[in-house]
């Protein structure tokens, strides 16, 4: 590794959200926006989340409903890449509820 390069994140570094299940349960009723991606396959849930987030203001909490397990790895990656905040996932037998908080746009 060259001296000016930095160690990169691996998958394990970002698959866990920052909220506990109890806190996420509260967000089920109090989140600001719901993105329904049930019945769709990746990358569609990410596309829907990304398109919804474009219109939202910073701090908005989005709950994404999906039944494709790929969201558990793709949405955290999307959050890191776009600097949005990955809050976590609630797993239910028939669906996943993924929570994301919109970050402030980066100053140019």
């Amino acid at each position: 590794m060259s001296p000016d390069s930095k160690p990169r994140r691996g998958v394990a570094a970002y698959v866990h959200g920052i909220k506990s299940d109890v806190e996420l349960e509260r967000l089920v009723d109090t989140c600001d926006v719901v993105v329904d991606a049930m019945g769709t396959f990746c990358p569609e849930p990410v596309i829907r989340t990304q398109n919804a987030a474009r219109e939202l203001s910073a701090g908005t909490v989005v709950m994404i409903l999906a039944d494709d397990a790929g969201v558990e790895i793709d949405l955290p990656a999307w959050c890191i890449s776009t600097r949005n905040e990955y809050l976590g996932v609630l797993r239910e037998p028939d669906k996943l509820r993924v929570f994301v908080r919109k970050a402030a746009p980066k100053a140019r």
């Binding site: 990169r8 994140r9 998958v11 970002y14 396959f41 990746c42 990358p43 990410v46 990304q50 494709d68 397990a69 790929g70 558990e72 790895i73 793709d74 955290p76 990656a77 999307w78 890191i80 890449s81 776009t82 600097r83 797993r91």
Partner: peptide, 29 residues
């Protein structure tokens, strides 16, 4: 991912572009 993710919640297939973006901290759309 379409096929694997049904029965494989422990190790789902990933979108490599998003994963690369996360590694580099480069936003990917």
């Amino acid at each position: 991912r379409l096929l694997g993710n049904f029965n494989n919640r422990d190790k789902p297939y990933r979108n490599d572009a998003l994963h690369a973006g996360a590694q580099l901290e480069v936003p990917v759309e």
